[in-house]
């Protein structure tokens, strides 16, 4: 029994790691631009399609494929910012949200028309996945890799945001974007960096998603991003720590509900998950760790 609990807790941890990784990508853009980038899912999908293309033209070296996929996601994220989000940068939040939704749907349909509506096998990341036995507990190497990668990503982000000039500027921009420009720091550079980082996180997520699913399809990233969105809302939108916390919380909730609910209530799983989330939001309407809103000036 105790083994079973440990086993399911580890499962919950790796669910959470994936949500956290994707939620971080949403949060970093939101914290600076106030944009909920639903197209983040398609940035992940591009990583997947890039792996598909590389496999098709006979790239075998996994390192090359991994770097290629991450690179593709970064380029895609920066490209989307340039062509789709920059024109609406100073528009209101709804415009940004609708733009992101539109971009997401257009890309999904492009994948569908240009590649295929069906899943296409991409098995080149299977090598990341092998079973590991710890006593009576079984985990997959992928669960470890994904959790470790998420933790490393968090560490990298914290260091970047605390230590580097651009990172500090990004934190400042999340509070008062115009003031950052008034320091002579290029807005475009700060925002492009935020998108590049979100693309990097998306690329890493793409690798783990492909390693597990072994296939790409047009909705590869859309569904996980919906989950990550929920994680961000629970954790406090715009807060990076909140995104991570929300991701792990959602992972624990989902696995918990799956395990605890009797099968006849199975269809209610999501309802229960959202009920818990609703309770959290009643308690903390802005999410658990909502970022500070006031400018902090003492007048």
């Amino acid at each position: 029994m105790i083994d079973y609990v440990v086993q399911q807790s580890l499962n919950a941890l790796s669910f959470g790691a994936e949500y956290a990784l994707i939620a971080l990508g949403l949060a970093i853009v939101f914290s600076i631009m106030g944009l909920v980038n639903f197209a983040h899912g398609e940035v992940i999908a591009i990583g997947g399609y890039c792996m598909m293309v590389m496999a098709a033209i006979a790239f075998r070296n996994p390192i090359v494929i991994i770097i290629g996929a991450i690179f593709a996601s970064v380029i895609m994220a920066v490209f989307l910012e340039r062509i789709a989000f920059r024109p609406v940068r100073y528009a209101d939040a709804t415009t940004g949200l609708l733009t992101a939704f539109g971009v997401s749907l257009i890309l999904q349909n492009l994948f569908l028309l240009l590649v295929s509506p069906r899943p296409i096998a991409v098995t080149s990341m299977y090598f990341l996945d092998w079973p590991i036995k710890l006593g009576s507990i079984r985990i997959s190497s992928l669960q470890i890799f994904e959790t470790v990668a998420t933790l490393l990503a968090i560490l990298f982000l914290v260091l970047f945001l605390k230590r580097s000039f651009l990172g500090i500027a990004m934190r400042a921009a999340s509070l008062d974007f115009e003031m950052v420009r008034l320091m002579g720091i290029r807005a475009n550079r700060v925002i492009a960096t935020a998108f590049a980082i979100s693309g990097l996180l998306a690329g890493i997520a793409a690798i783990f998603i492909i390693a597990r699913r072994g296939a790409v399809d047009p909705t590869l990233g859309f569904n996980p991003v919906l989950k990550a969105f929920v994680a961000c809302v629970v954790g406090g939108f715009g807060s990076l720590t909140g995104a991570v916390l929300g991701g792990f919380l959602l992972g624990a909730l989902e696995v918990g509900m799956l395990v605890i609910l009797p099968q006849s209530y199975g269809g209610m799983k999501d309802a229960f998950v959202f009920a818990v989330i609703a309770i959290i939001l009643v308690w903390r309407p802005e999410g658990i760790l909502s970022p500070q809103k006031e400018k902090g000036d003492k007048i």
Binding site: A169, R171, M183, K295
Partner: peptide, 29 residues
């Protein structure tokens, strides 16, 4: 700004989530 115009704005607008040092650091952008 790069040409040499600097502003201490109305309402101060310090970056309240940044440390004092980081505020000054950004000032040297």
């Amino acid at each position: 700004i790069k040409l040499g115009i600097s502003i201490a704005p109305e309402g101060r607008r310090v970056f309240s989530n940044l440390s004092v040092f980081e505020n000054l650091y950004l000032g040297s952008a």
